[in-house]
């Protein structure tokens, strides 16, 4: 059965953190609730789990591809057209470094852009459960739960001091 979203709104961030504690005590997995804020809070301020992402992998892969392409392009060009310039070796590292550096950078940037799209979970067709007051400083506690758990979740959120509660699709 599709999960239901419940959004509790708090004017005080401390109450939102308490709501997180209450949800944990209720047995809601920390993968099933999140905190919505209009500005970034310090990591761990709500006692939330450490969120991870693999964004750093993308530029490394891109850089590696770019570097490889750069090395291949320069070395193969110079082997195919072996022109001795200024008495330097055919495969001279400084001129190869120019192209490989740029190739590495371009590869890294291209893959970073792909990584941004992937890690931001784009495209997101809809905004999901939200409230305008979050932009004005309220903190939202967004819970994804089974339909039969909704009443209990709402009770926990209210007990923690939620000023308003909304239901909807996550």
């Amino acid at each position: 059965m599709a999960k239901t979203g419940v959004l509790g709104l708090y004017s005080d961030a401390n109450y939102a953190a308490e709501a997180g504690d209450g949800l944990q005590r209720m047995g809601i997995s920390d993968n099933d609730y999140d905190f919505l804020t209009g500005a970034p809070y310090p990591e761990g301020a709500f006692g939330e789990k450490e969120s991870s992402h693999r964004l750093y992998v993308f530029p490394f892969v891109g850089a590696l591809c770019g570097l490889t392409a750069g090395i291949l392009l320069t070395s193969m060009t110079q082997m195919a057209y072996p022109l001795v310039t200024g008495g330097k070796p055919i495969l001279s590292l400084p001129p190869m470094a120019i192209v490989t550096y740029e190739g590495t950078m371009l590869g890294a940037i291209l893959f970073t852009v792909l990584g941004i799209i992937f890690e931001s979970r784009l495209p997101r067709p809809s905004l999901g459960l939200y409230d305008d007051r979050i932009t004005e400083g309220y903190v939202g506690v967004l819970v994804e739960c089974e339909p039969e758990e909704v009443d209990r979740v709402e009770q926990v959120l209210t007990q923690a001091g939620a000023e308003d509660i909304k239901r909807g699709k996550v």
Binding site: D34, F35, T37, G38, Y41, E43, S51, L55, Y130, I134
Partner: peptide, 13 residues
């Protein structure tokens, strides 16, 4: 949405 993950990913980006 401004989830904790959104902000963390944005910081990394």
């Amino acid at each position: 949405q401004g989830t904790v993950r959104d902000w963390n990913v944005q910081k990394g980006q």
